[in-house]
Nucleic acid binder design. Structure first.
Lengths: 330, 330
DNA sequence: ACTCCTTGGGAGATCGATCTCCCACACTGT
DNA sequence: ACAGTGTGGGAGATCGATCTCCCAAGGAGT
């Protein structure tokens, strides 16, 4: 009742382990078609399954890529992980997803866990632009690592991200084109590179005295807080750019409860274009990341020689997705 | 520059591989404290990392548990995976999460992938009560498998689920206690055991001619459809029980848009108690699963001898969480 | 007909950690 | 002082698949 090994298959087919391996692993070596057929048949009949640990030990590769995301509670990161999984699977691999619970200590632990020869490469969406650096650098010295969607200083490796500055410009141009000029930013999580870049791009474009509401984290609840604050204090505002979709969701629902019509009095935009946005009322204008292209690039870099992963940031072009939350003034 | 092996650590510490292994793997065998110290020190200094494949090959265990969930797009399953991850990590293991994209074919493929000696055991939240059975049974013949949150017929293994009938009773008693008697059910995904059980429990309690709105899938969008249908056709209704939180979210927003006050005219309940419910307006009454206890039980069963995993369903008691969506009539 | 290739296929080494012996030494009790 | 007991530690086998040789058979060329 013990699981059949390659040896058993070879014996059943009347060939050596080497030949059986050549057939089943698809090594580029010619094998007599008749023997190949016998091996295939024997494997099928015995219900043979490759022992993954043995192959990994011998070949030194696992066919598995790991990714550590800040939090799966944020649907954007679920979408991101999904895009990566698609690409990895298309390449015949497997993706293992870990959640860092928005905590650099947990993040370091997760990276450490994945490192023990379990993965061929690691993708990290760093929790913090500063504090995540050391753990990533340590990992990058032992395994190929590529940062994704966010960067971290001192990481020692390349980052594949969105061009947040261009994205902010797209949003502001869109709003200004609609005649909205008193624009506020609701930003969160300045510790992350994406949070910081979006804030910086906004203040650079609109001036340092433009209205900003800063929040600790990318959550729906934070969005509600922002909504309350804007409804009460910032009554002159006619548009709000949110630094993340989850913020926009909370914001819009709170504004509406406070009898502030969206987009009637205030136009609202999100950031990340998560799927839930289409289902809201009103659907929210947002920025779409070219996740497929980014995933493809990240995986290419992961498999490239180490010298192509020098510490730097590659930025991908964002795309504006217009929905009714920024309809022209009613 | 090649990674240090146990052999290198042993040599550096001046002991044999066996002793180094005893120290680093923590085998319950006495080792001279001085030698142990030298091994620890050498491992530290060389930056030694255990080769996971080698250990897995030798010991036949990987320390990894896999879980296949229907869809991570549903926040409930994210929460569920998180609860499992906590338990697994507490036991010193690692959890690998796979997404079946609500498709039994993908599900079978994911199970197959995880099976190749990569995991010590498998947890499955089956997509379908009927169609998921064969793939699960095939897996269960090769590795310990426990179903979680849903069951599947012909799976050949045990399922750890919620007592959906008791849950439905809790909801109905609560609503009736508030004087709401014209109750409709919005149900989805009858292919899943949870969807089917909730519908069955409702019709049994309320009679076969009670109003039900059946939808194909557990998504927010489906909830919106239901909302539209209820606002238009079922005007006599004073309460709606939704078979899942994501349905309730869509339903409530649509009802409100149609000028049907919640809970003013219609009380609404969800099912699964996902975190987002607290953040909505109004917060939605729901059923909480004892996920921690369920996760603990599932993992215990996974490690138990096969004979304890005979095909059956273990049901855990639900808990009613009351929020303002079922406030007393205004 | 004889050598030289080409090509299929097998024997054995190998990946790195753990486990199973078994030995050496020290200590106890009579 | 000697057998008996216990404890620390090492040599070698082992897990299962792959890789590196190397050999044998058959075909081509002169």
């Amino acid at each position: 009742m013990t699981a059949p090994r390659l040896l058993d298959v070879a014996a059943a087919a009347g060939v050596s382990r080497a030949t059986a391996s050549r057939v089943l692993a698809g090594t580029p070596r010619n094998v007599d078609p008749e023997l190949a057929r016998r091996v295939e048949e024997a494997a099928q009949r015995l219900g043979y399954r490759l022992n993954h640990s043995a192959r990994a030990l011998r070949t030194g590769t696992t066919g598995t890529i790991g990714v550590v995301v800040p939090s799966l509670a944020n649907p954007y990161f679920v979408q991101l992980a999904d895009a990566l999984a698609q690409q990895v699977r298309a390449a015949g691999g497997q993706l293992v997803v870990s959640d860092a619970a928005n905590d650099t200590a947990v993040e370091a632990e997760q990276i450490e866990t994945l490192l023990g020869g379990r993965v061929d490469g690691l993708l990290v969406v760093p929790v913090s632009a500063g504090a995540s650096g050391p753990a990533v650098r340590a990992a990058a010295e032992r395994t190929p690592v590529v940062l994704f969607d966010r960067w971290a200083t001192g990481s020692g490796t390349v980052a594949v991200t969105l061009d947040n500055t261009a994205a902010m410009r797209l949003l502001l141009d869109h709003l200004e084109g609609l005649g909205r000029h008193r624009i506020a930013l609701v930003a969160a999580d300045q510790a992350s590179s994406s949070g910081a870049e979006r804030l910086a791009a906004f203040t650079e474009a609109r001036g340092a005295d433009a209205t900003t509401v800063l929040l600790p984290s990318f959550t729906t609840d934070a969005g509600r807080t922002a909504g309350r604050r804007i409804a009460e204090r910032h009554t002159g505002i006619d548009a709000v750019v949110c630094g993340a979709d989850v913020l926009a969701v909370g914001l819009v629902s709170t504004l509406q409860r406070s009898a502030v019509p969206v987009p009637g009095r205030i136009a609202v935009t999100g950031f990340d274009d998560t799927e839930m946005l289409e289902l809201l009322d009103p659907p929210i204008t947002s920025i779409r990341h070219p996740l497929t292209a980014m995933a493809e690039r990240a995986l290419t870099l992961l498999q490239a020689p180490a010298r192509e992963r020098t510490e730097r940031v590659e930025r991908f072009a964002p795309q504006l997705v217009v929905r009714s939350s920024t309809d022209a003034d009613a």
